[in-house]
Structures are given as structure tokens and as C-alpha cells.
């Protein structure tokens, strides 16, 4: 029976924050907190979210937040967890909430170490594929083909996006998964799953968080662009348990072809519009290769 869906929803994100209109990272936090609930401590490094948390004396979140140095999410979260354990609190979930820069690049070492130590917290990377807070400079998460302020014009990024989930899978963490703002139920399910794996080690969630400001599309398209990324298999949604067991959630691995060519996804954003048909075709080829490898792992 179709319902009115009118129940009040407990939101842990306050309105009035300074996120850009259409900010995917903000949407990611809102959805994540719906699943994480109030017994959560957020550890937030330098990132867009460091600003969105709020200017003194305001907070945009209803949970405690520790802001920390850019490189330190993995370490600071470990310390917070140790403190809560020492105080006898095994209920509160510690969540490191970092951007792609603070995860793939400057924060990578601390993340790897925390994963290797089996630290008991959830590490969430909300990925807008560049250093957006500082004005759109490339990170190792920026995809091949993208223009940013440090890969401008003909110097567009020639390196592939680092596959961070594969890196975490190689650490054999109990749970690593991709998620997307366009698939809220899937995202919330994965957060709840991560919470339930308390004590098992580090859980890693990689959220695709589209950025209208940095990628060059109108603010109303954030969710649509995120959906196109999944539909084109550019950013498939999947889970890896213990670094070995793969499950593909979206798109369906039974479909022979993607429902959307990668070119359509890229044409929707001005950061890719300079690419020639041949370059797009080579990206399509690579996306299909990676998808094929992923499917093999999921068999």
C-alpha cells in the first residue's frame, strides 16, 4: 500500500549551513546521519565540510564534531575511539568524514595505518573528485580527462582516478563499499551495515558526491549526474567484505550493456566537455574493462 511518507524524519543536519546550492557532500552527510543517528562523533579534517560544519559559534550538525588537521583523519579518529573505549563507551560510533583530498592524497597514510591496525571506526570519504574547498585543484581522485585549476586547458588530467576501494580491499578491512547520493536507500543501508560491524575493524565507505560548482553543471542536476555516473558504470555501487567477497549493487550485472554511454555522463559536465570523440571512446573502453574485472570478482 502506498503511504504518505509523512512521518517526521530525525535530521541531524541543520539548515542554514553554507554549502553551495546543490552540494552533493551536504546531501551525503544528511543521508549518512539519518542512518548513523545521534550516538555518533564526527572527525572532520580540512575539506569543504570543515567549512560547512559552521563558523564560530554555530554548528550545522547535531552530533559532536572534532575538526582536525588535513592529513590526520585516520589518526585522530583512532585517538577518539581509544578515548571513548577508555571511558567505557562502546555505543558511540566514531566516523571519520573526509573529502577525496584528505583520503586519497594527504590523508592516505593515516587511513592505511588505521585500516592495518583494524581500528574500530567508520571512515567515510565523500568524493567530489578534486580539492574543491581550495578552488578546484586536482587530486588523485580526479578522473582521467577532467580539467581542474591545476590541470587546465590542454593539461587536463592524464592519470586515472585512483581506485581507493580496491586499496582498502587489499588491506582486507571487514567492509568497504561505494555509495552514491543518488541511491539514498543503498547509502543508508551501507551506513547501518558499517555501524553493525562494530569492533570488526575499519569500515570504509566511498560516497560519490557530485559538485555543481567544481564540475560545471547547474545546481539542480547533482543527483541526476550522480545517477548517470552509476548508470554508465563509471562509478558502480558495490561492496567488498573482508577484502575478498564482492557484491555489485548497481547497475545490475545481468544487463548486457550499460543503460547510458559514459559520453552522456561526461557531456553533462563542463569539466569534460573538451574531450574529443576518440578520447571519450577510450574512456568508455576503460570503463568497460574495469566493469568486466569487477564482475569477475563478484562471481
Amino acid at each position: 500500500m502506498k503511504s504518505y511518507n509523512a512521518d517526521p524524519i530525525e535530521e541531524y543536519l541543520n539548515p542554514g549551513h553554507v554549502g553551495c546550492p546543490g552540494c552533493g557532500g551536504t546531501l551525503a552527510m544528511k543521508l549518512a546521519l539519518r542512518a548513523l543517528g545521534p550516538k555518533t562523533v564526527m572527525v572532520v579534517p580540512a575539506s569543504c565540510w570543515a567549512i560547512i560544519v559552521g563558523n564560530y559559534p554555530q554548528s550545522s550538525l547535531k552530533v559532536p564534531v572534532l575538526q582536525t588537521g588535513f592529513a590526520t583523519t585516520g589518526a585522530a579518529a583512532s585517538g577518539v575511539r581509544a578515548a571513548l573505549d577508555a571511558r567505557g563507551d562502546r555505543e558511540t560510533t566514531v566516523v571519520g568524514w573526509a573529502g577525496d583530498g584528505g583520503t586519497f592524497d594527504i590523508g592516505f597514510q593515516a587511513l592505511s595505518a588505521a585500516a592495518e591496525r583494524g581500528e574500530d571506526f567508520i571512515y567515510v570519504c565523500y568524493d567530489n573528485e578534486a580539492y574543491m574547498n581550495t578552488g578546484v585543484q586536482r587530486s588523485s581522485s580526479t578522473p582521467y580527462g577532467a580539467r581542474t585549476m591545476t590541470t587546465p586547458g590542454g593539461g587536463w588530467k592524464r592519470q586515472q582516478k585512483k581506485n581507493i576501494v580496491e586499496v582498502l580491499a587489499a588491506h582486507r578491512v571487514p567492509y568497504a563499499a561505494t555509495a552514491s547520493i543518488a541511491y539514498p536507500d543503498d547509502l543508508e543501508r551501507k551506513m547501518r551495515k558499517a555501524v553493525s560491524l562494530r569492533g570488526a575493524g575499519l569500515r570504509f565507505i566511498h560516497i560519490f558526491a557530485s559538485c555543481p560548482t567544481g564540475w560545471g553543471f547547474a545546481s539542480d542536476k547533482s543527483v541526476k549526474v550522480a545517477r548517470m555516473a552509476v548508470a554508465s558504470r563509471f562509478f558502480p555501487l558495490y561492496e567488498v567484505e573482508d577484502g575478498l567477497r564482492y557484491t555489485i549493487n548497481q547497475p545490475s550485472p545481468d544487463e548486457a550493456g550499460a543503460s547510458l554511454p559514459v559520453g552522456d555522463y561526461m557531456r553533462a559536465q563542463s569539466r569534460f566537455r573538451h574531450l574529443s570523440a576518440e578520447e571519450v571512446a577510450s574512456i568508455q573502453e576503460r570503463v568497460e574493462e574495469e566493469w568486466g574485472r569487477l564482475k569477475q570478482k563478484a562471481e
Binding site: S3, Y4, N5, A6, P8, G24, S222, V223
Partner: peptide, 29 residues
């Protein structure tokens, strides 16, 4: 039809929802 997409996807958490069945016409929220 009360699918709630608007409230789900609002980054500002700024979609208000009225009581069930009080919409205009009176079969949505």
C-alpha cells in the same frame, strides 16, 4: 504521490511535510 524524493534529496533539509492526508487535494501530505 508522497514519494518523498524532494525531502530526501534536499541538501538544506528544508522541505516541510504536512500531516498525512491534509494536502490539497486532500489525499497527499
Amino acid at each position: 504521490n508522497d514519494c518523498d524524493n524532494c525531502r530526501t534529496f534536499c541538501p538544506e533539509a528544508a522541505v516541510d511535510v504536512g500531516p498525512p492526508g491534509s494536502g490539497d487535494p486532500a489525499w497527499t501530505s
